[in-house]
């Protein structure tokens, strides 16, 4: 293990922690508009999980090789597949399987203490204050994974962590019990403040570790329900220098992952920068990372 980095940003912390959850035998779903997830899987693949397989929703493909994260040319990554499927096959075959697809990250707009999630709307469904894009496959997959489902959000606040979600579109532990569909349920929630897990007995959310520089009060204050707090509270292990070097240098040098974290003008500037740099590329195949 190389030295821990002393110079990392929040998006890098999130991405590295997500990468560390991947196992060498995983089949990793890369969804739509989730560059953090893509960067995390690619980082895992070039560090501790060389045999892991990408399952791209945008291509409905199984892909073995890791390539640099890209905005405009992502189909170049997905089309180099050893297997193509259509969405029907892909969704229906992978749904109950323990081998075709094993790990997926969901980013909820709202989450409750049992890991039930909402990506549908704020307010009443019939008359919503905010309509979100929708939950895509979360309603199908969240209750099935034998590895469980994995959650993340760069917005650890009381708008996200709520006592009751406005619409359950992803199943956690309904009423504190495992889903009758047989999956292992949510395993962790990685946020900008902490690494959260679920208590074995009560299935309630508890603090696993708190990120360096964050205090317990901040985490409690930012959560809209009571978290279980372990007696010996530990600090999250930050990214290593090696992880940061790979992430910045190889996996995602254009910092596309940051689009998930930034807002407003900063975000727009980064987006324009990424577009400009990618349009200027002569070679439109993202770099192979082997």
């Amino acid at each position: 293990m190389s030295e821990y980095s002393k110079d990392y940003t929040m998006d890098e912390m999130l991405t590295v922690l997500m990468a560390r959850e991947v196992r060498n035998d995983d089949v990793m779903i890369v969804g739509v508009a989730t560059p953090c997830v893509w960067a995390a899987f690619t980082l895992a693949k070039v560090t501790h999980a060389p045999d892991a397989i990408f399952h791209y929703i945008m291509g409905n493909t199984y892909v073995f090789e890791p390539r640099q994260v890209s905005l405009l040319y992502l189909e170049m990554n997905t089309a180099r597949a050893y297997k193509f499927q259509n969405s029907g096959e892909c969704t229906l075959e992978s749904l109950p399987s323990d081998t075709l697809t094993t790990i997926e990250w969901f980013r909820p707009a709202q989450i409750d203490m049992y890991g039930n999630t909402n990506n549908i709307c704020i307010g009443e469904w019939k008359n919503p204050k905010i309509r979100f894009p929708g939950c895509a496959g979360i309603a199908d997959f969240s209750m099935f994974y034998s590895r469980g489902s994995f959650l993340y959000t760069p917005r650890h606040d009381r708008k996200t962590f709520v006592p009751k979600v406005d619409f359950i579109s992803g199943v956690g532990f309904p009423d504190g019990k495992p889903s009758i569909c047989g999956g292992s349920g949510p395993q962790c929630v990685i946020t900008n403040l902490a690494y959260l897990t679920f208590d074995n007995e009560t299935k309630r959310m508890k603090i696993g570790t708190i990120h360096p520089g964050i205090d317990l009060e901040t985490v409690k204050k930012s959560t809209g329900f009571e978290l279980i707090i372990p007696k010996d509270l530990k600090e999250t292990k930050p990214p290593t220098e090696k992880e940061i070097k790979l992430l910045r240098g190889k996996v995602d040098p254009l910092e596309i992952r940051k689009l998930e974290v930034l807002g407003g003008k900063e975000r727009e500037e980064l987006l324009n920068q990424v577009i400009e740099k990618e349009l200027a590329m002569e070679k439109r195949f993202p770099n192979l990372l082997l």
């Binding site: 749904l95 469904w125 309603a139 199908d140 209750m143 099935f144 359950i168 579109s169 199943v171 889903s179």
Partner: peptide, 13 residues
């Protein structure tokens, strides 16, 4: 038949 969706609020809407 689908062994999914169960446990979500889909049936309500």
């Amino acid at each position: 038949p689908l062994k999914g969706i169960i446990g979500t609020d889909f049936p309500k809407v």
